[in-house]
Nucleic acid binder design. Structure first.
Lengths: 293, 293
DNA sequence: TCGGATTACGTGCACCGTAATGATC
DNA sequence: GATCATTACGGTGCACGTAATCCGA
């Protein structure tokens, strides 16, 4: 069994070529590294280096050993990383979502589902969500489409449609639908925490001036005080996020209707199933009545 | 980066359950192991154990960490094992064969093919050959049939037919073939280094008394001095291993005709190809003339 | 003269064993 | 009185840094 520090030293020499450079990177002195290489050769019992007067190179065996060392070092790192991730996942569940609404649904369900566990949730970009899932930063993520990744498992569990709210005396208030094209060029209120909705708005409304409000309170006050159209969604409206004196008009473009996919690593599929069955009930309770109307 | 000895200690505790037993197995004292577990918890920063007054158990995180530790220890062991195997394979090629003749063909070819490399060869049982190949004990093995193993690659490169040699005045000397059935019940000379041929003889000649000669010289002298039938093969006879005053008669049973397969790990396929093309020439030179007869 | 490897020497720390204590059955 | 874990203490091996030497461009 070869000491881990010797493998680190070997790896450094393999990566930096000279004792001098490698020692510098390792924050040790040259003699220390020189001794380590001697010790390694003694441990292996076979030559690992070509030595010239003031040069040292890995020979074929040495290169091969360095490869193996890299793997062993990775495995060693993983002991700590994976164990910490495992421990965290037992005490804390972090979910990431492309938009705020799925979080509103999931958090209460998670609380029922995993009692005694600390919950956290955040809105993030889609690619950050996927890498975060694989790094165990998130246990569950919500994406606006099914990911193409065979390490994860994904189930659709919600949809959401973008609305615009306007004062009741606004000319659009009588319409029963509206399109991005209608809105483009206007000044519009949009929440900064809208996640991927913001990206959609920016791409579909290149000529609009989007007044992004990162503070939810400020957003509500502005919607109340101004006559500016403001973005909202069917789910949020049904959830009670209604500004009095305003009418909600749906946006008909297909981009304004999204299907969410609850996603986790395959190893976590059991938890996902449990979560989904519990959240079905809640979703039905929340959205059922309106769908039956 | 966690010291390897700590991982070993953790692994031992996971395997033996109590500090006492684990310490015993590790050949260290209980206090030493107790301290190691403390150190591990400090390194991880999260609890790994349930502690009662005079008991200690791995908790879920601890069990998970022990799993990871096992992998890291394996990877560490592999650094030494694989590197030594690699180094040996660069300085020494060991071939294993189920029978002596393929070795006679391969050794000279290997000498041409891998100049400066030490060569060794031995006859061994078929299952020992396969495990030896996977343990890097052998680089190449010769089997009497294609192995069913998807880690290896196998090419047929030789065949051999069993003969019996008898004094010219023996009644069988006039026959142009003979069968195991004819031979069963007789006393027969057979070389101890015949490898798998010996197994075939034993199974096909349950009633014969096989006089096994482990010394090749003794075998030749006995064949010369006695009138006992002696086993031989087409390949050996063509190679000049002829006892004067004896006639060779082929054995017609299908078991007396074998197809050899030269086999190596898939990672070594390039070497095998090189070896095969070089050995083709030699095989043709040795066997070509008789096949054309 | 600088970049690079090695040898010689002294030091501090970390891991170990011994001994003793406490707890449970 | 077994078995098992933990704490306290003293010793030692060993990995490190410093200093010095040697070699080549």
């Amino acid at each position: 069994m070869i000491d881990i520090y010797l493998l680190e030293h070997l790896d450094a020499l393999a990566r930096f070529g000279t004792l001098r450079r490698a020692a510098e990177e390792l924050h040790i002195t040259e003699p220390a590294l020189s001794r380590s290489m001697k010790k390694l050769e003694a441990a292996f019992g076979v030559p690992l280096f070509f030595r010239e007067k003031n040069r040292i190179f890995l020979n074929e065996t040495g290169k091969y050993a360095a490869e193996c060392a890299k793997k062993a070092l990775d495995a060693n790192r993983e002991v700590l990383e994976k164990t910490l991730a495992f421990d965290r996942s037992r005490h804390m569940i972090v979910i990431g979502s492309c938009a705020p609404y799925p979080i509103r649904v999931l958090l209460p369900v998670l609380q029922d589902c995993f009692a005694g566990v600390t919950l956290a949730a955040e809105v993030a970009e889609e690619d950050m969500l996927l890498t975060g899932l694989q790094d165990s930063r998130y246990q569950f993520i919500v994406l606006p489409q099914k990911p193409e990744n065979d390490q994860v498992v994904s189930m659709n569990f919600l949809d959401e449609r973008l609305y615009i709210t306007i004062p009741e005396n606004h000319p659009w208030a009588l319409r029963d639908s509206i399109s991005f094209q209608d809105l483009d060029g206007s000044r519009l209120l949009v929440s900064g925490s809208a996640g991927f909705w913001l990206k959609i708005c920016k791409s579909k409304l290149p000529n609009a001036s989007l007044l992004i409000q990162s503070d939810a309170d400020a957003m509500a006050k502005l919607a109340d005080a101004s006559s500016l159209p403001a973005f909202n969604s069917d789910r949020m409206l049904k959830g009670g996020y209604i500004v009095p004196g305003r009418t909600a008009v749906p946006i008909i473009d297909p981009e304004a209707h999204v299907q969410y996919y609850l996603t986790c690593m395959k190893s976590n599929k059991a938890k996902l199933d449990r979560l989904l069955t519990l959240s079905q009930a809640r979703i039905i309770r929340l959205s059922g009545p309106s769908e039956s109307k």
